[in-house]
Design a protein around this nucleic acid. Structure first.
Length: 542
RNA sequence: GCGCCCGUAGCUCAAUCGGAUAGAGCAACAGCCUUCUAAGCUGUAGGUUAGUGGUUCGAGUCCACUCGGGCGUACCA
């Protein structure tokens, strides 16, 4: 629809050059009586032309050359909007297009040939993933899906470090539990990891080595075992949500490959670092940030900043066109440093897009649950997935904008799983499958021959919404807003359910029935395609 | 103190680049199944968009301030 309008406006601009003065945008009005597409161009031109908006609108319409077979009505409304109403016949062409493209419908080639790296989850292997990590995981994976839909080739990446203080404490915790299992008295403090999984790892070591590890001086054997076991579980948790990482990037490799060293040397060469109080500082103030920060501590250990910068340079080295980081709001202070750092090293920091999502407040039994991996106070992501199912988890985390501080009432999620909006969408899909089964039995098949018969309100509305899918996918991908897809699908499903109620197929005159089957099939493809972006299954029966 | 995010119906949340009468779901109430799945449809009710001021043809959206919440503000990650 937009393409058509763009073309006729381009033609009109040849006669009225002032139309090139402003960007002409067409949007879907939120009010039903305001046409199918609408533009505010006349209002934007008031300052340029020094005329009243409605006068300008009138003039624009007079110069507009359009086909009556395509556009039914053009009208000026309100303060000066120009509203376009399309003919049902034109709208119905979308069914033919969907039938042709099927599960490809909605994809765009706009970014074909481009590559993206999406880094998400990136939790250190100190314990199982919690519900808190769930939002990160789902956002990262769905944004990746969206980018793939608009042409990107996407690598999903998980960054971790197994060398820090947390991991040391983890190793010690396992070591203590190991000794405890072998009958020693231990001093297990609040600082150690309290979770049951620590004991399970210790038990594995007992099974494997017996008491041979009692003389181990440091915690490294225990840490290594804990890391591998926990990672096994994390991967399983992600798999249960249909998430598969391409790469697990260990911070350690940055040291082995001397990447850290070379970045440090480069900052020094560029005069961007200095020593003070035995620490090495990065001159972030010179790069436009608030204050200088420490890169290497007096102890000789780097802070997270240095490896983060080094890590991001490897993403550039690997040639990605787009680099995306998914972080919780607790990281919102760190990425400007990293961006400034890689920028100073000569990389185009604008290729990095940082997606900050707000934390989920977990509520259980009416109370806010503060999660802590160390204190073993958490609800694991696996528990959630098991109790409500993958589809509900994925849909729930996808249905709200990243910037919304959402509340997640665990009890409600379990109890109301039957009333979750995701079932509304899946039900629409299943209903269509059912229709197609029934009609097939009666040898009624979809036909594209008489689509102009689709002209009732319910049919026309449904076709209009089908028209919006491609734009919606593109916009959602470019703005990294998966929730728009969820909102769109709810609207589409609602429109279908109305069509289902108003427009019967069995028992209807054959040509109309065949056209309606075609519409139902088209709707089913779009629901299925949309759900697949979100990573939600589209059942044929419910 | 400073920085980022947020405050919209009883609850959970939408609202395209600043657009028209602020929309859904849940909960409440009243209807609709001898016919393709009632996990559905139709209708009613529910709002000073936290508050005050400003910018303009037009503000939930932009600016300033106030109130309230989340997260930061490390030689933790």
């Amino acid at each position: 629809m937009k393409e058509y309008l763009k073309n006729i406006f381009e033609e009109a601009a040849k006669v009225s050059p002032y139309l090139n003065e402003k960007q002409i945008a067409f949007s879907v009005p939120n009010q039903k009586g305001h046409g199918d597409l609408s533009t505010n161009i006349a209002m934007l031109l008031t300052k340029v032309l020094k005329k009243k908006p409605r006068e300008i609108a009138n003039e624009i319409i007079e110069n507009l050359n359009y086909d009556k077979e395509v556009i039914e009505k053009v009208e000026i409304a309100g303060p000066g909007f120009i509203n376009f109403v399309f003919t049902p016949k034109f709208l119905s062409k979308i069914i033919i297009q969907i039938d042709k493209e099927k599960s490809e419908f909605g994809k765009s080639e706009k970014y074909i040939g481009k590559s993206a790296n999406v880094e998400f989850v990136s939790a250190n292997p100190t314990g199982p993933l919690t519900v808190g990590h769930g939002r990160n995981a789902i956002i990262g994976d769905t944004v990746s899906n969206l980018l793939e839909w608009v042409g990107y080739s996407v690598d999903r990446e998980y960054y971790f470090n197994n060398a820090g203080r947390q991991m040391r404490v983890l190793g010690e915790s396992v070591q203590l539990r190991y000794r405890e299992l072998l009958g020693e008295e231990i001093d297990f403090t609040d600082e150690h990891y309290q979770g049951e999984y620590i004991k399970e790892v210790a038990q594995l070591l007992v099974d494997e080595y017996g008491d041979k590890l009692l003389n181990e001086k440091d915690e490294s054997v225990f840490k290594a075992k804990a890391e591998s076991e926990i990672f096994k579980e994390i991967k399983e948790t992600l798999k249960n949500l249909d998430i598969e990482m391409k790469t697990f990037f260990n911070e350690d490799s940055l040291y082995k490959d001397k990447k850290i060293e070379s970045v440090l040397a480069e900052f020094k060469d560029k005069g961007l670092s200095y020593e003070s109080d035995n620490a090495v500082w990065l001159k972030l103030t010179e790069l436009g940030n608030e204050q200088d920060k420490v890169m290497v501590k007096a102890t000789g250990e780097p802070t997270y900043r240095l490896p983060d910068i080094a890590y991001h340079t490897t993403k550039f080295d690997r040639g990605y066109d787009k680099i995306i980081d998914v972080f919780g709001s607790d990281h919102n202070a760190t990425f400007p440093d990293v961006k400034a750092g890689v920028g100073a090293l000569g990389f185009d920091a604008d290729k990095i897009d940082v997606l900050i999502y707000q934390f989920v407040t977990i509520i259980e039994k009416g109370k806010v649950v503060k999660m802590s991996t160390r204190k073993a106070n958490y609800i694991t992501l696996d528990e959630l997935t098991e109790s409500v199912g993958k589809d509900v988890v994925r849909y729930f985390f996808n249905m709200r904008s990243l910037s919304s501080h959402l509340n997640f009432d665990i009890d409600l999620a379990k109890k109301q799983s039957e009333e979750n909006p995701v079932f509304y969408l899946q039900y629409a899909h299943a209903r269509i499958s059912s229709i197609l089964r029934m009609t097939k039995e009666q040898n009624l098949l979809a036909s594209m021959e008489n689509l102009e018969l689709l002209n009732t309100t319910a049919e026309v509305n449904l076709m209009k919404i089908l028209h919006q899918f491609c734009d919606e996918v593109l916009y959602s991908a470019e703005s990294y807003e998966p929730h728009r897809i969820a909102n769109y699908l709810e609207e589409l499903a609602a429109s279908f359910h109305r069509f289902y109620t108003d427009c019967r197929i069995l028992g209807t005159e054959q040509k109309l029935a065949e056209a309606r089957i075609a519409l139902a099939m088209a709707t089913q493809f779009v629901i299925r395609n949309g759900l697949s972006i979100l990573g939600v299954t589209a059942p044929d029966r419910m």
